[in-house]
Amino acid sequence: MIALIVRRTFELVFLLFGISFLVFSSMHIAPGDPAAMIAGPTATESELTAIRANLGLDDPFLVQYGRYVKGAVQGDFGYSYQTKQPVSEAIAVRFPNTLKLAVASMIIAVIIGIAAGLISALRHNSWLDVSSTTFALAGISIPNFWLGALLILVFAVNLQVLPVGGLSSPFYTWQGIKELILPAITLGTGSAAMIARMTRSSMLEVIRADYVRTARAKGVKERNVIWIHTLKNAMIPVITVIGLNFGFLLGGTIITEKVFAINGIGRLMIDAIAARDFPMVQGSVLLVATLFVVVNLIVDIVYTFIDPRIKYD
Rank of each mutant, 00 (worst) to 15 (best):
A184H: 04
L291D: 00
H229D: 14
I112E: 00
F305L: 10
S26P: 01
V161L: 08
I273G: 02
W146K: 13
G247P: 05
F260A: 03
A72N: 09
R67I: 07
V220T: 11
N245A: 14
A192M: 12
L162M: 06
T49Q: 13
L16R: 06
I19G: 08
Q82M: 07
E222Q: 14
I185Q: 04
R216E: 14
N144K: 13
V299G: 07
N54Y: 11
I38A: 03
D313R: 14
E257G: 04
A274M: 15
F155D: 07
I298H: 08
T9H: 00
W127D: 03
E179G: 12
R208H: 14
A3V: 09
A275N: 13
L101V: 03
M269V: 09
T240V: 11
E205H: 09
P41H: 13
S284R: 05
Y211D: 03
A115Y: 08
L162H: 05
M280H: 02
F278K: 00
T44W: 10
I185F: 13
F292M: 09
G165D: 02
F21H: 12
V295R: 09
A39W: 13
S120Y: 04
S201A: 13
L55F: 14
L153Q: 13
M27I: 08
D210I: 01
V288W: 00
I140V: 15
A104D: 00
E179K: 08
G56W: 04
P34M: 12
V161K: 01
G117V: 01
V69K: 08
L57H: 07
P163H: 08
A193I: 11
V23W: 07
A50S: 15
T189E: 01
V110M: 14
A115S: 15
K258D: 02
L162W: 02
V302D: 01
L297D: 02
D58S: 13
L118W: 01
L231I: 10
L137H: 13
V295L: 07
F14L: 14
